[in-house]
Design a protein around this nucleic acid. Structure first.
Lengths: 221, 221
DNA sequence: AATATAATTTAGTTTAACCTAAAAAAATAT
DNA sequence: ATATTTTTTTAGGTTAAACTAAATTATATT
């Protein structure tokens, strides 16, 4: 019945992001994601299990319940709406907003989020290309794949990023590899897995690391 | 050096609001304001004194330092900017925004507040008529007085409220006694201190309690 | 001035969220 | 199948911020 604490919300979000649908998530994985220790996770996970947000059995890892899912989605919704606000209205850059949204996502007020959503005109994607869940937790499926998996000689549009670190985002910005841009993959180097591509009629090379963290959507033409 | 905790910020704000410039503020007064107990205040006040945000001597009460003042003003600035945003942009009503702003004021990011201030076009007053400190802590002086102190047969404009409770604000809204409205005080009843006034060419009576919590600015005509 | 009342502080608990170190269980390798 | 390594849990400790109850200091009353 009580509202969740900020810590509880952060654990839930981590568990949601780590859950692949296969097996239970280990305490170590959660600890690593939250920069905390496995012992702390065990403790917290017991509390969340009592609140029916996840199922937990000793040594078996953790699986979020339906309630856990919808709760996590509500937090992610808030995070992404705030990110959209920060970039589109306040004109912060996409590499500055994550830490701020990490704080804003814990503000408690259903009405605030409804009003914010309306003010922003119900955006569907956040500044990093991630889908924003609606009030019911539904979000659009953005079928896209890693740029490192695209076959040479095909065209694609940049739709998102897998890594949200400021360093990575700033680098993309500098290279003009931003969301919405259309590129042509020319070839992949067998030696270092780097990728040669054409952007704005100019040829460029990007490292394996960058290609693995860029999400694209294949297009014809 | 560390950033302040939410609790520390709330104590500083309370101390700022209670300080009249005369004597030190007692732990009981602070406890009452924060719905906590005097013993808890004693503890916290020692910590804030170590951080040079206030001076404290046993049994002598507490006085904010210059550093304490500017820190409190920065928090109040954030609170009022967010209130302005919630009312003017998100269209929440003036009785709904206090609790939300109470959470938002603790978000840590100087750049966020600068950008928010610019986005709102540097407002000088919040939705309750309270002045918004600028980046340097300066705010406009709004010379105004309690409606209960105005002499009969004079005109005045409503400029602010002393009480920020939703119940009071909703009541004012219903009576159309909102900020900016011009009224004429007709007379004060000696028995119950109620006030008769004219608003929009209609005569009305308001209780002593309301008159004491409405701030007005006398005008000619 | 002595006493009663009120305000404040101290001492000792509680809770949430973290930690380390050691024990126990599970997974992996020989 | 047994031994080794890794993962997870337990046990016990720490810190911030609250609390209650008792002791102390200040203020007010007679």
């Amino acid at each position: 019945m009580h509202a969740l604490s900020i810590s509880e919300e952060n654990y839930l979000k981590a568990i949601f992001h780590l859950y692949t649908g296969e097996e239970g998530i280990g305490t170590n994985a959660i600890a690593h994601h939250l920069h905390t220790k496995a012992a702390s996770v065990t403790e917290m996970v017991k509390k969340l299990a009592e609140k029916k947000l996840l199922t937990y059995e000793k040594y078996q890892g953790v699986i979020p319940t339906r309630k856990g899912f919808t709760t996590a989605l509500a937090i992610i919704r808030k995070h992404r709406l705030w990110e959209y606000f920060l970039v589109e209205k306040l004109k912060l850059s996409w590499d500055e907003v994550h830490d701020i949204a990490e704080q804003l996502e814990h503000i408690k007020s259903d009405k605030l989020i409804e009003k914010l959503d309306r003010f922003l005109d119900f955006p569907k994607l956040d500044p990093h290309g991630d889908p924003i869940p609606d009030k019911a937790g539904k979000m659009c499926v953005t079928k896209c794949c890693c740029m490192s998996e695209i076959k040479p000689n095909s065209n694609a549009k940049i739709t998102g990023v897998k890594n949200h670190s400021p360093a990575f985002l700033k680098h993309l910005e500098k290279m003009h590899l931003t969301i919405g841009k259309t590129i042509k993959i020319v070839e992949r180097n067998d030696f270092d897995q780097s990728v040669q591509l054409v952007l704005n009629h100019e040829t460029m090379h990007i490292s394996k690391e960058i290609a693995e963290n860029l999400l694209v959507h294949k297009i014809k033409r």
